[in-house]
């Protein structure tokens, strides 16, 4: 006998394999009925169907969007989902902003958007350790932006975060 959550997921996955659009009804309920990791499993069953992933993200609540953002790099999407990452970077939800700068965002965001994203992390007190591959993407312009921000903080008598100091 399978647990109810395993049973739910075992029935949900073939539905998505057969018809990717079936995920629209299953994905919102997936964590409470299929248990932790169920959303990630359902996304995998889409085999990189980027139009469905886009509409799923647009219709998603924060939990669903977070599940999509953190899985993007595993979904064979090439650069097609960079718009979702940019959408997440427009929010003021630290969970979404941090997830946007995960492996997928770091791989596909252009330099300007990536630098703005990193600076937004600093503003939101998201540790820079949350940014994937920061060493690879770090450049002189980002260093200048962080230095200028540190100067603003000092002028205001506010502490400069340690992970910013380490980068400038």
């Amino acid at each position: 006998m399978k647990e109810p959550a395993q049973e739910w997921l075992a029935q949900a996955l073939p539905q998505v394999e057969a018809d990717p659009h079936a995920i629209h009804r299953l994905f919102p309920q997936a964590e409470r009925r299929g248990g932790p990791g169920a959303r990630r499993a359902l996304l995998g069953a889409l085999h990189g169907h980027h139009a469905v992933i886009h509409s799923l993200y647009e219709a998603g609540d924060s939990g669903e969007r977070l599940a999509i953002l953190t899985a993007l790099h595993e979904l064979d999407l090439e650069g097609t989902a960079v718009g979702l990452v940019e959408d997440a970077l427009r929010t003021n939800d630290a969970r979404l902003v941090a997830a946007a700068l995960g492996p997928y965002g770091s791989a596909w965001l252009d330099d300007h958007s990536f630098r703005q994203g990193v600076l937004k992390c600093v503003f939101m007190s998201i540790p820079l350790a949350a940014v994937a591959e920061l060493d690879r993407r770090f450049d002189a312009e980002l260093a200048r932006m962080l230095s200028d921000y540190a100067a603003e903080l000092r002028a205001a008598g506010r502490p400069v975060p340690r992970d910013v100091l380490e980068r400038i």
């Binding site: 409470r32 630290a94 007190s125 540790p127």
Partner: peptide, 21 residues
């Protein structure tokens, strides 16, 4: 679907997020 598990006290945020700052 009512989820009142502990954890909301700290919040799903990072210390000193934008709202607080």
């Amino acid at each position: 679907r009512l989820d009142l598990a502990a954890g909301s006290e700290a919040g799903p945020d990072y210390a000193g997020n934008t709202i607080k700052r």
